[in-house]
Nucleic acid binder design. Structure first.
Length: 206
DNA sequence: TACCGC
DNA sequence: AGCGGT
């Protein structure tokens, strides 16, 4: 693996698990098994390393989402795939990271805002429209409002004042909120299909 | 690895 | 004090 690649992989993992501020450049050099000099040959400063690592993580997310069951192959299969993705994605993630980035790494935060707007919001909107067409979601819901609501819900759990990690498991919290959202927009048909699919998924993954 | 300066 | 940067 190239130095640059190794640095990014190490930084990504450490930043995500322990937070951007508590992981130092010395830590990353040590974990990557190289000197700080090598790191500073590839990255001009910590800000750039955080940016590149975060950018790489977002691209990984995009890739993962593309590998889920497609919306067109079945809304409900896609939903259950999404919950599995949430479990994986949030399992090793420190919720502090996003707050640190918002406060101390503005370019990085801007990238995240673009990601939300260009990917997350579009994904949710497609899902809602398709689900309405197929009779899984109530036709009277306002797609735009519900898509924005859903995105803000996802961001809520990263507020350590509202949802302290000591009290709530981030994965379970995210799934709790996700299911509550779904039950708010399901038709009877959608609710039953979801419960069946979940049951089937659990039988196959035990 | 030692060191500086914030 | 401890971390980014040399």
């Amino acid at each position: 693996m190239e130095n640059r690649e190794k640095i990014i992989e190490t930084a990504k993992e450490q930043f995500m698990r322990f937070g951007v501020r508590s992981v130092t450049m010395d830590d990353i050099a040590r974990m990557a098994g190289m000197s700080k000099k090598t790191i500073y040959q590839e990255f001009s400063d910590k800000n750039q390393l955080v940016f590149e690592s975060f950018s790489s993580a977002l691209n990984e997310d995009i890739h993962c989402l593309e590998n889920l069951p497609k919306i067109n192959d079945g809304i409900i299969e896609h939903l259950v795939g999404l919950t599995a993705h949430i479990r994986r994605r949030f399992a090793d993630m420190n919720p502090m990271v996003l707050n640190e980035i918002q406060r101390y790494f503005p370019q990085c935060w801007q990238l995240f805002e673009e990601f939300k707007k260009e990917h997350v919001l579009k994904e949710i909107t497609d899902l809602l429209e398709k689900g309405k067409e197929e009779g899984f979601f109530r036709p009277e819901i306002n797609t735009e409002v519900m898509a924005l609501l859903r995105m803000e819900q996802m961001m809520l759990i990263f507020d350590p004042i509202k949802f302290p990690m000591s009290k709530f498991n981030p994965v379970e919290l995210q799934l709790e909120i996700f299911e509550h959202f779904l039950y708010g927009i399901f038709t009877e048909k959608g609710r039953e299909a979801y419960l069946n699919q979940k049951k089937q998924y659990n039988e196959n993954h035990n």
